[in-house]
Design a protein around this nucleic acid. Structure first.
Lengths: 195, 195
DNA sequence: CGCGTGATTGAAACCCTTCAAGTTTAGTGG
DNA sequence: CCACTAAACTTGAAGGGTTTCAATCACGCG
């Protein structure tokens, strides 16, 4: 698991084994069964998860008991609460969709590791900006796209997730009902699109 | 303008006048008239704007010529493109809604300034996380809320913008039509809600 | 084998959009 | 400062994309 994280970092920055050892002391590994809730609304959390195997998700449950999926986190993705950074409890659930192994990274990991390995500051900056960029695109999609457009967007962006995630969760991520997604898929099939 | 920026920083971190002078060399001030487009889709930009006076917005125009507003930026907010960080042209327009004065901050400002004033790394980290947090909440709203809920959310979160931004832009931000927003407001008036 | 979860399908309902007036407001020039 | 025009907002009626509700089917797992 640590090797996988080292690989991940090395795709983005230059880092020696010694440096990596220096900054991996605070990291723990944990394995979760399927459907394990690791964070619930109202809780505080100082942990960020780096998924090395499996699949996690972040979601809310609204007043009509509807599930709204904010984010999926397959291998090599990050997931965690950000409210606790501001001393506020989280609004969201985080759980596993598949049996999952994840590294548990302390909240201020990159700030502290950056003292030893300065380029991690830049990496942190890049990753956060990338998140914002993707969320901007998602907001743009939610503002403008029809059910069909949303689904086509999804399978283009996450082709592998399309097969791993139950359809009703994809619908929840897209902001449509499972029934609507089913009909969209039926229509697409008639138009000779596949999966 | 610079004083205002200094104030802004000092609300968040401890910084001396000397340190501020050290890091303000790369910053320029610019004043724009109303409705001035400063960035268009397809362009690259290394600038981030810190609004000291006025109001800017980031938006897309989709294939049906519909405007979708991603973000407003009133005083003391940041606005800029993030795609260029990844050597991709932007998808969005950025323009002014009011006559606006803004500081123009180079792309890697916080990374470089952080070398001189280390706590700026932490500030950068905090600000980016805050953006993500707000965007998560917005995504959650777009996934779950009705037109009326969206509007009530907006006026609670941005009470001063409600008066400064034309209604059709608020509608665009909320992902509904101007007509729908007008009807929502009418209904709320009947229920004795004000503005 | 049977139960539960997920996916599909149909029909009706609904919220929101679209289209098309009108009305009000705001900005500009005489 | 008024007059005029364009833009913004309102209102109504019709239409459409999605949702809701309900029933059925498919599948995996104990």
């Amino acid at each position: 698991m640590f090797d996988q994280f080292k690989e991940y970092l090395r795709k983005k920055v230059t880092i020696t084994d010694e440096q990596f050892d220096l900054i991996s002391g605070d990291i723990k590994v944990k394995t979760f069964p399927k459907n394990q809730v690791v964070l619930s609304p109202g809780e505080m959390s100082t942990k960020t998860y780096f998924v090395t195997e499996g699949l996690m998700r972040c979601y809310s449950v609204d007043s009509k008991a509807k599930v709204n999926i904010i984010q999926f986190a397959p291998e090599n993705w990050w997931i965690g609460d950000r409210n606790s950074l501001f001393n506020e409890p989280t609004d969201f659930f985080i759980d596993t969709i598949e049996p999952t192994t994840a590294l548990i990274i302390p909240r201020n990991y990159f700030m502290e590791a950056g003292v030893h390995v300065p380029c991690l500051h830049a990496l942190n900056n890049t990753m956060l900006n990338n998140s914002i960029r993707f969320m901007q695109k998602r907001i743009n999609m939610l503002l403008s796209a029809t059910a069909e457009e949303r689904y086509l967007d999804f399978i283009k962006l996450y082709p592998n997730l399309t097969l791993r995630v139950p359809q009703w969760m994809i619908a929840s991520y897209l902001g449509i009902t499972p029934e609507s997604l089913s009909r969209v898929r039926k229509d697409l099939a008639h138009k000779h699109f596949k999966v």
